[in-house]
């Protein structure tokens, strides 16, 4: 699924990466705790989070996550936008909740999740 399609489905505002919206992602991860992101995230993933602080950008950068969506109407600070731009990251924000955002992407066909079985 392209980031452009994700932005449409979530009626999202695009903060950075306007020229990269044809990037394709194959999995999604919805989490507010960054250690959970680091435990379960896959390649070519979009991260949906309600955590709006510099650690969200730093965690995504360390994991080579290229697309981050802030849910529940939260918008990134100017510093976060700048850090994301430097890292070549696409930042979106949506007014939908985490549940509805994940549901809309899942319903549209983005169904791959974490990297490993949870036991």
């Amino acid at each position: 699924m392209t980031v452009r399609r994700i932005a449409e489905l979530l009626e999202a505002r695009v903060h950075t990466g306007e020229d990269d919206l044809d990037l394709d992602v194959s999995a999604a991860c919805g989490a507010d705790l960054m250690s959970d992101v680091m435990a379960f995230v896959k390649e070519k993933v979009v991260l949906l989070t309600g955590l709006v602080n510099p650690q969200a950008i730093r965690t995504a950068d360390l994991l080579d996550i290229r697309v981050v969506v802030f849910v529940r109407g939260k918008t990134p600070s100017r510093d976060m936008v700048e850090a994301a731009r430097e890292s070549g990251m696409i930042l979106l924000s949506t007014n939908y909740s985490m549940f509805i955002s994940c549901g809309r992407l899942y319903e549209a066909g983005l169904r791959a999740g974490g990297t490993r079985e949870i036991r």
């Binding site: 705790l33 960054m34 250690s35 959970d36 435990a39 602080n53």
Partner: peptide
């Protein structure tokens, strides 16, 4: 996994999930 002694304010910052040491090991 899941065991954490981090205070609530750390969880509000996105950490304290009790995954730190297991993530290091993995």
């Amino acid at each position: 996994e899941g065991y954490s002694t981090a205070p609530e304010w750390i969880r509000e910052l996105g950490f304290g999930a009790g995954m730190g040491l297991p993530n290091m090991r993995r």
